[in-house]
Computed example of a mutant assay.
Amino acid sequence: MQKSSTQKFPAGKIPATIVTGFLGAGKTTLIRHLIQNANGRRIALIVNEFGEVGVDGELLRSCGAPDCGEDDIVELANGCLCCTVADDFLPTLQKLLERPNPPSHIVIETSGLALPKPLVQAFAWPGIRTRTTVDGVVTLVDAAAVAAGRFADDEAALAAQREADPNLDHDNPLEELFEDQLGCADLVLLTKTDLLDHDGLQRVQAELAPHLRPGVKSLHVRQGDVAADILLGLAAAAEDDIAARKSHHDAEEDHDHEDFASFAVTLPEQAAPEALIARLHPLIAAHDILRIKGFVAVAGKGMRLVLQGVGARLQHYYDRDWQSDEHRATRLVVIGRAGLDEAAIRAALAA
């Protein structure tokens, strides 16, 4: 019995799930698994890319799920959704709702830089509120990254760093973003947990706990393997609970992402994945690259290679054959903090 696929929501509203999480936390992997195991649900996806190459959108389209057609995936590449709610998000949502055969569930994958609260607030807008509801905000957390202290929330340590280095005497937007995503969550999914032992996981959960609202649960996830009946059907009606979802940006009219930079690189076919990865490791360390992702054309291989990198961790796999009308080229998106030396990175990749 597929109980949640026929679950009734208030006044016939179509439920929407917002999937958020920092760069490389595993959002696309989670959604691919979801649409491959939708159990008859008509799921429409809104994918928000940060970067010039629509990597996440392409990966989702290639998942091969029979219930997820080309028209069910909408990619918004005009900046972070939380900054373009009125211009991009709301018109897209309205078009989905006005279809002759509308979806039974909408899933919104935000970029790693997005604040979820402005999206939740958008569901209270006239014309939207009566037709859809935020079923839940699902936040993914890279547990291994948190354990390594990359996005840790240690106020004493931060204060000491700021005293020692005047350049750090300001609010850290990475931490604020991380905390805002946790504070808005109805469900938290911890990924990369296989890289930690029991004590490490306990430390991560203790670090996250102060930023979660009462009653919010966390689950350990591998390769996005979460049952649709758990991920969907939370019935949180988050737009009615917005006051309880505290944010560092509550007093601001908007926010910016000037602390981040992104650019795309196109390269020719690569002789071997190992050679490219060998070039990437020192490059990531030297320039403190936060995220690198894209598709690689490998000489002599008929299949496309997907490359996903978070910090020093690089993963790659072949996902599908190159199409006859596709140009075989390597396309990567590089994401880091503002001031990223784009020229040096491009030169090193092309060497």
Rank of each mutant, 00 (worst) to 15 (best):
E175T: 12
F263G: 03
Q270W: 01
R304Y: 00
D288E: 15
V265E: 08
R291K: 08
R328T: 07
A86M: 06
A16I: 05
E49G: 07
I289M: 00
Q2F: 07
H220S: 12
T28V: 13
R279E: 13
H198P: 00
E109L: 09
A227H: 08
R320P: 15
L234P: 03
C83Q: 10
E342I: 04
G336I: 06
W322A: 01
H255I: 09
A148T: 14
L195I: 09
S262F: 08
Q205R: 13
A344P: 13
D256N: 15
D288S: 15
L290V: 14
Q202K: 14
H257G: 05
A238V: 09
E269K: 00
D288R: 09
N48A: 09
R129S: 14
A164T: 10
E176G: 10
S104I: 03
V296E: 13
D321T: 12
H220W: 05
V204N: 07
D229W: 00
L90H: 07
K293H: 13
P173M: 09
E253Y: 06
G79T: 10
L23N: 10
E269R: 02
C82D: 06
T330H: 03
G183T: 11
D88N: 15
L196T: 14
E342Q: 14
S4K: 01
V188R: 02
D56H: 03
K27M: 15
I289Y: 01
L276G: 12
I128A: 01
A25Y: 05
H255K: 04
A272I: 07
N39L: 05
V188D: 03
L195E: 11
T110I: 10
V226A: 02
R222M: 03
V221W: 01
I128E: 02
H249A: 08
M1G: 06
L189D: 03
C80H: 06
R32M: 12
P91L: 03
L232F: 04
Y317H: 15
L115C: 12
Q181T: 11
D250G: 03
P100R: 11
R131F: 04
V298L: 06
A25E: 09
F89Q: 09
L208S: 11
E70D: 14
S4N: 05
C82H: 04
L196Q: 14
V74A: 11
P66V: 05
A157M: 11
A227R: 01
H287P: 07
L208M: 13
L81Y: 02
K293A: 14
D186N: 10
L314Q: 05
T92F: 06
R41N: 00
W125F: 12
E176F: 06
L280N: 12
Y318A: 05
T133K: 02
A86C: 08
V141Y: 01
V296L: 10
H105T: 05
Q94G: 11
I73Y: 07
A143K: 02
A144V: 02
R213V: 05
F22C: 15
E274S: 14
L280T: 15
L189H: 04
I242Y: 03
D256M: 06
R129C: 07
L96C: 11
E75L: 02
D194K: 06
R346K: 08
